[in-house]
């Protein structure tokens, strides 16, 4: 086969640890049909030799599900944030550049710490509280029409692509980013979750909340799950407007 000798050219932005300077290292890995970024990285793991033929350390990345539902393997591939698992080598132009997402602190190489997103989910109370000291019984039903769009919002996997693309999420701003705002809409739409609607709205009316959105709408373009993030933000804006009037005028 002609394909046998083909090598994939990777240029990877690496970093030894959280505190050291990033550097670029190039790799040539043997091609196989239907490879994704993860399988290319696994080739480096098997044989950690860079393009110059020097022995090096294997490139570190994070991945869990390998089917684009966990959000762990997000990285900047050819300039855009995507999942390494669902990005196929055959669909990319070479050389392929891999870099960690710049919005998050780098732990090592392509592995970043997305803790700020989980903190934001806690801050906006992105859950439905159902615990009690006794059986509270079944809650109200969700209309099928609501369920259909709510399901789309529930696909958010906290991958961080929307934060990476947002010009207003950066180290000069405290903006929590699009993903948690969409979760506010999701949990406020849930018939039982709606019982705590005002708590979530109040949470995003604080510092770095919904008003820090500047409507660049990059988030909806890069979301790998196709979540209508800008519609969510505008809908939550509407809830916030109503709630702030209600809170002030009574």
């Amino acid at each position: 086969m002609v394909e046998m000798d083909r090598k994939i050219h990777l240029i990877i932005t690496r970093q030894k640890d959280a505190h050291s300077e990033p550097y670029k290292e190039e790799f040539l890995v043997p091609y196989r049909p239907n490879m994704n970024i993860i399988s290319a990285l696994m080739e480096i793991q098997k044989n950690a030799v860079n393009a110059k033929g020097e022995k090096t350390t294997p490139v570190i990345w994070e991945s869990v599900c390998l089917e684009e539902v966990c959000g762990a393997c997000s990285m900047v591939i050819n300039g855009k944030p995507r999942q390494a698992c669902s990005t196929l080598i055959d669909q990319l132009t070479e050389p392929i550049t891999l870099a960690p997402m710049s919005t998050f602190p780098v732990i090592r190489d392509l592995m970043v710490d997305r803790q700020r997103m989980f903190d934001a989910l806690k801050r906006v109370r992105a859950w439905v509280p159902i615990d009690g000291t006794y059986d509270l019984g079944p809650g109200p039903r969700m209309p099928e029409k609501t369920r259909q769009w709510a399901y789309e919002l529930s696909k958010c996997m906290t991958c961080g692509c929307c934060l990476e693309a947002c010009p207003n999420v950066n180290n000069k701003s405290t903006f929590i980013g699009p993903a948690p705002l969409s979760q506010v809409r999701l949990f406020n739409a849930h018939p039982t979750g709606a019982m705590h609607k005002e708590e979530r709205l109040t949470a995003i009316m604080g510092d770095g909340g919904i008003t820090a959105c500047g409507n660049s709408q990059n988030c909806v373009q890069v979301c790998p799950k196709g979540i209508p993030l800008t519609t969510s933000i505008a809908q939550v804006n509407r809830q916030v407007t109503k709630w702030s009037f209600k809170r002030f005028f009574g």
Binding site: A165, S173, N215, Q217, V222
Partner: peptide
């Protein structure tokens, strides 16, 4: 406060933001 990124994301609305 914005970290403009029209170089990477060439979408119309990102240009309008810029």
């Amino acid at each position: 406060q914005a970290k403009n990124n029209i170089g990477t994301y060439h979408y119309g609305r990102n240009w309008k933001f810029f």
